[in-house]
Design a protein around this nucleic acid. Structure first.
Lengths: 92, 92
DNA sequence: CAGAATTACGTTTCCCGTAATGATA
DNA sequence: TATCATTACGGGAAACGTAATTCTG
């Protein structure tokens, strides 16, 4: 499991489409597809249903999505907290 | 930033010692030291004070530690949630 | 054919561990 | 000298992208 995989998962969940999510992440389809497969393999559960038109979240995927978003938000918060403590600015 | 880096950070923070943390993580000192340096570089802030006897958390590091633990706990919760939804068990 | 995801394959990049180095008392 | 952390360096694994494949209608 990696943060990159989580970002990929969220993007695919929101786009419902590997190709579209890949463009959004500035990636090609194959690695993105592999991220999802690796995640499913690691979790031991299918997260998406593969339909003719794309990817649709399964119940396990919907549950996981909530956590994934929370983790990524926490990461963001962690960065901002450190910047706040040290007074570091983006541009300075 | 990676979950591995966060695990490394927490271990060093708790042990106050790169060598000891490395043993705990079944790793050697150099990669672990690099994890911390990469984290500090990415955050743009020093997280530890290097003392003669080891590593001591700075204020920014203490603030970051709270987030790091939370992120790792969330990851764990995410895994358990998926297992709960799908009924997957650890041993089978 | 058309459109979607996945697998195959080659290259590059990343990361670990051993060894060497720097710093402190 | 002794004990830390860090840097240098070489080899193996991981991950990307292009191209080929599979699946459905």
């Amino acid at each position: 499991m990696s943060l990159t995989h989580l970002q990929s998962f969220v993007a695919v969940a929101e786009e419902g489409h590997v190709g579209r999510a890949a463009r959004r992440l500035h990636l090609t389809q194959p690695p993105l597809s592999r991220h999802i497969l690796a995640l499913e393999d690691e979790l031991g559960a299918r997260l998406f249903e593969r339909t003719r038109s794309g990817m649709r979240l399964l119940p396990a995927g919907e549950a996981f999505l909530l956590h994934a978003r929370r983790i990524l938000a926490e990461v963001d918060a962690a960065v901002h907290t450190v910047r706040g403590v040290t007074g570091t600015r983006s541009g300075g």
